[in-house]
Design a protein around this nucleic acid. Structure first.
Lengths: 190, 190
DNA sequence: AACGCTAACGCAAATAATTTGCATTTAGTC
DNA sequence: GACTAAATGCAAATTATTTGCGTTAGCGTT
């Protein structure tokens, strides 16, 4: 996004909502390469200049929309055990991100060249989710794990292969990566 | 790139060279967001329509240029030992890719939404380089290593942190990642 | 070395996207 | 309720992109 929002209420918020909604709807209907700002503007019922003024360009708008879609709506599922929580989260993450929609979201987030706050936010979601899972394990009296290490050993390879398209990231691959995570220590600094 | 080149010689090749050169020169002078196709066309001495016809749009041209710049010009340095070869390659890779120029190249390659051949090519460079290093080690009588595993455990985390901008990837971090690679086995399938 | 075929090109007109100035609306504050 | 600056709508100006068409030139064939 071009800049942080200052006004939160009324018209400003409504326009943001409608532009986001129009963008999502159009992304579901047409190819990414066909999408244009005037197209979104018409669907949202606002003049194109409003979009350019608020978001700068299409890439930044798409990044903004993508971050919202990647933002988790709830805590990760609680399966009762650390191993179960991690397995469920990782497999679901890989499945969502490797889908055509997920890949596009990932790329949209990274394509925003202006401020890389989009990318950083997005990667924080994963970090926070893992923190919740780790905290839960400690509460249960289970061993903890290093969140930074889990990112490096499990999520980074998954994202790498999705982005570069050089191999599939099915459940088997995810579980193999999971076996390399070391459990037992308290949370150490990354 | 929009499509595979059919003609290799003469004018076609010269225009490709001049457009690439103009793009590189302009990228060094101005911000990525300021760069436009007509600007490149003028510098290269060709009409903009030629660029649009051959590359489709700016993103695809930038991806094409980025792939060329990421293409290694020589085999990785031979330091005499596998550990030395890997250390040198990884540290240099992280340094180059985490620089502002490297980050931009990486993002340009990934931003090309049309065909992800750019990204796949680019990731193949790393794979091939590691194959050379592994082959060399075997020739010396040293232990080999699994190239796929090295990508997952070392390069993927480096690229992840560069792209998402959530931490630095200095030599210490690279060397720590390197310690997780298992040596000894012959090359196994990824 | 000349010939034919067609990809690739240059040019310019047509279309579409982006920027910008200015008047108006409105969210947030006192 | 009045004030102030952010945010918007509108329309003109600018810039980028697409497209039709005639020309050039690479490449295979003879």
């Amino acid at each position: 996004m071009a800049r942080e929002m200052i006004r939160q209420g009324g018209r400003t918020a409504r326009i943001q909502k409608e532009v986001h909604q129009a963008t999502r709807a159009l992304l579901a209907e047409i190819e990414r390469g066909e999408l244009t700002v005037p197209m979104i503007a018409e669907r949202a019922g606002v003049p194109p200049s409003t979009i350019y003024r608020r978001w700068g360009d299409l890439a930044q708008l798409l990044a903004d929309v993508a971050v919202e879609r990647l933002r988790p709506i709830a805590d990760p599922d609680d399966t009762g055990t650390l191993a179960g929580d991690l397995d469920a989260f990782v497999v679901q993450y890989a499945e969502e991100m490797s889908s055509p929609v997920g890949r596009r979201l990932l790329r949209d987030v990274l394509a925003d060249g202006e401020t890389d706050t989009s990318a950083t936010k997005c990667c924080r979601f994963t970090y926070d989710h893992l923190e919740v899972i780790a905290g839960r394990a400690l509460c249960r009296g289970e061993a903890g794990f290093d969140v930074g290490q889990a990112i490096d050993r499990v999520f980074a390879p998954i994202v790498y292969h999705i982005l570069f398209g050089d191999r599939d990231v099915g459940p088997e691959f995810c579980r193999q990566l999971l076996t390399t995570v070391e459990f037992g220590g308290l949370r150490a600094a990354a």
